[in-house]
Amino acid sequence: MSNTKGSKHDDCKNFIPVDAAKGLCAWTNEMIAIDSECCPKFEELPKCKNCKSFVDRTKDGLGNCVGLEDKSFWAYGEMPAVNCQGWNN
C-alpha cells in the first residue's frame, strides 16, 4: 500500500489499462477511469517519474534518464519502466 496522493490509476501495479481513458482493476476486475481516485490498495507501478535516475524534470513531464548505458537521454515521466533494467527507486 502506498500514498495515493497525486496518483492516477495507471500509476498502479494493480491496474490493467484498456485504453487511454480507462482500465480494469486486477483485484476487482471492474472497469475504472484512469483519472478517478485511487484506493488504499494502490501499489506504485515502476515508471520513469518514480525512478531516481530520472533527473532534470520539466513542467511538461519530460526529463533526462541517466540510468542506462547511454548515460543520458531524454525520457518522459509517465513511461512504464516495468522492463527497464535501470529503474531504480
Binding site: 495507471d10 485504453d19 484512469i34 483519472d35 519530460l62 531524454w74 518522459y76 515521466g77 509517465e78
Partner: peptide, 21 residues
C-alpha cells in the same frame, strides 16, 4: 485528459510532449 490525434486515436495528455519530442 485524452487528446485526439488524426480524428481517430486518443493519447494521454501527459504523453503528448514525448510525441512532439
Amino acid at each position: 485528459k485524452i487528446v485526439s490525434i488524426a480524428g481517430k486515436f486518443g493519447i494521454r495528455a501527459e504523453e503528448v510532449p514525448a510525441l512532439n519530442k
